[in-house]
Structures are given as structure tokens and as C-alpha cells.
Lab assay of single mutants.
Amino acid sequence: KLLSSIEQACDICRLKKLKCSKEKPKCAKCLKNNWECRYSPKTKRSPLTRAHLTEVESRLERLE
């Protein structure tokens, strides 16, 4: 599967780190437990900047 097509777990399953069936409108866990089942939009991760990478590398060197 391509990364862009990976389905996201519902908010509660993601928060509780449960295996989500990803069914809509309610996944199996939410249906069974009568929880409100919501699927928040995916958040875009910002790409690493060179400055951040350099900072992490220098912190790693100090720890070694």
C-alpha cells in the first residue's frame, strides 16, 4: 500500500492505542462500548529543516 492511502484509526482508538477496525460511521470498538466515534483530519507533519537536523546532530555528539 502507498503511504498516502493508509487509513487512520478513529480518535479514541488512537488515543487509547487500540486496534481500530476503521469502519465508518462507527468502528467496532466504539460501537461495542457506545463511545462517540470521530475521525479527525490527518495532520500534516512539517518537513525537517536543516537547522533542526544540525541541532539534533550536535546534541547527539555531546551525549556520545
Rank of each mutant, 00 (worst) to 15 (best):
E36G: 13
S40K: 04
N33I: 03
K32S: 11
L3R: 08
A28M: 11
S4A: 14
Q8G: 08
C20Y: 06
E61D: 13
C10P: 00
L2S: 14
S4Q: 10
E7S: 09
L3S: 08
H52C: 05
L60E: 01
C30K: 01
L53R: 07
L53Q: 01
C20S: 03
R38F: 14
A9T: 03
K26Q: 15
A51N: 14
K22G: 02
Q8V: 05
N34H: 11
C20T: 04
C37H: 01
N34A: 14
A51Y: 09
C13K: 02
K17C: 04
C30H: 04
T54M: 08
D11E: 04
R59A: 09
E61I: 12
L2M: 14
T43D: 10
S21N: 08
E23D: 13
N34L: 13
K42M: 12
Y39W: 09
K26Y: 12
E61L: 14
E55V: 10
R45A: 00
C27P: 05
S21L: 02
C30Y: 05
I6V: 09
I12S: 09
A28N: 12
D11W: 03
T49S: 05
K42W: 08
S58K: 09
L15E: 12
P41N: 07
S58E: 15
P47L: 00
C30D: 02
P41Y: 04
L15A: 10
K17N: 06
E57R: 06
R50G: 02
C20M: 06
L60I: 11
K29Y: 06
R14W: 01
S40P: 00
C27W: 03
Y39I: 06
C30V: 05
K26D: 12
A51R: 10
K22M: 07
C13V: 06
P47V: 04
E57C: 05
K29D: 04
L2E: 14
L31H: 14
K26M: 13
L53I: 03
E61V: 14
E36L: 12
S5Y: 10
K24F: 15
P41H: 07
T54S: 12
R59Y: 04
L18C: 08
R62L: 12
S21C: 01
L63M: 13
K29H: 04
Q8H: 10
L60T: 06
E61G: 15
S58L: 12
W35Y: 15
L31P: 03
K29M: 06
C10Y: 05
L60M: 13
I12V: 12
T43N: 10
E64H: 10
S46W: 01
I6G: 09
N33F: 11
E55P: 00
N33S: 14
S5N: 08
R59N: 10
V56F: 00
A9C: 02
L60V: 15
C37A: 06
K19Q: 06
P41G: 09
W35T: 13
E61A: 10
K29S: 06
K24A: 14
E7N: 09
K32W: 07
K16R: 08
E55G: 11
A51W: 04
L53P: 05
S58I: 15
K17W: 06
Y39G: 03
L48Y: 07
K19H: 06
C30F: 03
N33K: 10
E64L: 09
E57G: 02
A51P: 00
Y39V: 08
K24S: 15
A28T: 12
N34I: 14
K24L: 10
S5P: 08
S40F: 05
R50T: 04
A9F: 02
C27I: 02
L3M: 11
T43K: 06
D11F: 01
K22F: 05
K16G: 02
C13H: 00
H52T: 00
R50C: 00
R38N: 15
E23I: 10
P47F: 00
R38C: 13
L63C: 11
K16D: 03
K22T: 02
L48M: 05
R50D: 06
S4N: 08
L3Y: 10
K19V: 05
R14M: 03
D11Y: 04
L53M: 14
T49G: 00
C10H: 01
D11V: 07
L48A: 02
L2R: 09
K26N: 15
K17H: 08
E7P: 09
T49R: 02
E7K: 08
K44P: 13
S58W: 13
R45I: 00
L53S: 00
L2K: 09
E36C: 15
P47R: 10
I12H: 13
S40V: 07
A9R: 02
A28D: 14
S4F: 13
N34S: 11
S4W: 09
E55H: 10
E61F: 11
D11G: 03
I12K: 10
R62S: 11
C10T: 03
K24R: 12
E57P: 07
E64P: 06
E7V: 09
N33C: 13
R38E: 15
V56M: 08
K1S: 15
I12D: 12
Y39Q: 07
K1T: 15
R59V: 02
D11L: 04
V56G: 02
L2A: 13
E7L: 11
H52R: 09
K17V: 04
S5D: 14
H52W: 11
R62D: 00
P25R: 04
K1R: 11
S4Y: 12
P41K: 08
S5F: 11
E36Y: 08
W35D: 12
T43Y: 06
R59M: 07
R50N: 00
R59T: 06
R14Y: 06
K16W: 04
L53F: 03
T54Y: 07
E55L: 10
L63A: 03
R62T: 13
S5G: 09
P41L: 05
L2V: 15
R14Q: 05
R38W: 09
E61S: 11
C27D: 05
C37L: 00
E64M: 13
I12N: 07
E7H: 04
K44A: 15
K29I: 04
E23F: 07
S21P: 08
V56L: 10
I12G: 14
P47H: 04
S46Q: 01
A9S: 05
K44R: 12
K26H: 14
A9E: 00
S46N: 01
D11N: 07
T54I: 07
L18S: 10
Q8F: 14
V56R: 02
P47Q: 05
T43V: 10
K32V: 11
R62N: 08
I6E: 11
C30P: 01
E23W: 09
S21R: 02
K22H: 09
R45K: 08
C37V: 01
W35G: 13
K24G: 13
E36T: 13
C20R: 00
K17P: 00
L63W: 03
P25A: 06
E64N: 07
L63H: 02
C13W: 05
S40A: 10
S46L: 03
C20K: 05
L53Y: 04
K42R: 12
L31D: 15
E55K: 10
C20F: 06
L48N: 01
K42F: 11
E36W: 07
C20W: 00
K19M: 00
E55Y: 15
E57L: 00
E23V: 12
C37Q: 07
T54C: 09
L18H: 15
E64G: 04
K17S: 04
A51F: 10
K1G: 15
R38Y: 15
K16Y: 00
T54H: 09
L18G: 15
R45G: 00
A28S: 07
I6M: 15
L48I: 08
K44E: 07
R59K: 10
K24T: 15
Q8C: 04
E64S: 14
N34R: 12
E7R: 08
P25G: 09
I6H: 10
L18I: 06
K22C: 01
A28H: 12
V56N: 01
T49Q: 06
I6C: 12
L48E: 00
P41V: 08
N34M: 13
K44I: 14
L63N: 03
C30A: 05
E55W: 14
K1H: 07
L3G: 11
L3N: 09
S46H: 01
K42I: 10
C37D: 07
C27N: 01
P41M: 07
H52A: 02
K19C: 06
K22W: 05
L18W: 11
L2I: 12
C13E: 05
L2P: 14
A9M: 01
S4P: 10
K1M: 14
E61Y: 11
V56T: 10
C10W: 03
R45L: 04
L3T: 08
L48G: 04
R50H: 00
K19I: 04
A28P: 01
D11T: 03
L63Y: 06
K16P: 01
T49A: 01
S5W: 08
R38G: 13
A28Q: 14
N33P: 00
K29F: 04
L31V: 13
S46F: 02
R14G: 04
C10L: 00
E23H: 14
P41Q: 09
L60S: 07
T49I: 05
K42Q: 12
P25Q: 06
S46Y: 03
